[in-house]
Write a protein that binds this DNA or RNA. Structure first.
Lengths: 120, 120
DNA sequence: TTACCATGCAACTTGTTGGTTGCACAATGG
DNA sequence: CCATTGTGCAACCAACAAGTTGCATGGTAA
């Protein structure tokens, strides 16, 4: 029973997930994502307010986030307005779940191994 | 009802989460974490097998992962054996949940705003 | 039209990261 | 004891990331 139904992530999947987590792995970018939870949608200018970096830096960060499918933008006149992209977060959650599940399995197997060894 | 019970993450929390996600944001490190799901515990030498980098590189990656509380080690004679650290993954999941929840709230407020505007 | 404002694009600096090689050391097994 | 093996540590390098400044551009509003 339960003979390992989870498949190992493909090379491409690993790369995609790495990109996504790397996008999440920066203080400014996390602050941007949090800020997108206070009001929606927001322009680059707005998002730059009370962040300790210039508008251009924020632009770059937003580009990284967009690349990782964590935000999307809608051009509106001369403004670009950004919104958080739920699907991206879901992918991250799923990736974490896969790893957590495999660790569980590994620990279970380890425990069984120890027990069977002790019986002999 | 439901007048925003979630608190904004503190500066320190944001920094901690950024460190954690940054640790997850590398292909080699993800492969290491996945590998820790195939057998447990494993030495540095074992973990280096069929990875395209040297043992020293793997050592550095493991250090990053340990720093982010994603793995822990037990010294065993001259070997250091590594195991995935579930608590670290849980923290990551929680952080993602907080952001997702806030995005939901923001979209809800946006929708309400649009509706109330249309009524007037 | 003209002035303004949000943004894009490019060049450049600086710090960090991922990787290597070389050597030293301590536990293990003959 | 001696050879082997798993590791740690340090120096070094190349590539990349984060940030800046300066200038160009294209909507918007007077």
């Amino acid at each position: 029973m339960s003979t390992q139904t989870l498949k190992r992530p493909s090379k491409a999947a690993v790369r995609r997930n790495a990109t996504m987590f790397a996008a999440l792995g920066d203080e400014i970018r996390l602050q941007l994502l949090i800020k997108l939870g206070t009001s929606v949608p927001q322009s680059i200018k707005q998002l730059t307010l009370d962040l300790p970096v210039t508008r251009q830096a924020v632009t770059k960060h937003l580009h990284v986030l967009e690349n990782a499918k964590l935000v999307r933008q809608e051009t509106h006149g001369r403004e670009r307005r950004f919104i958080g992209c739920q699907a991206g977060l879901d992918d991250a959650q799923t990736a974490l779940n896969v790893i957590a599940q495999q660790w569980d399995d590994a620990l279970t197997r380890l425990k069984q191994l120890v027990e069977s060894t002790q019986r002999e």
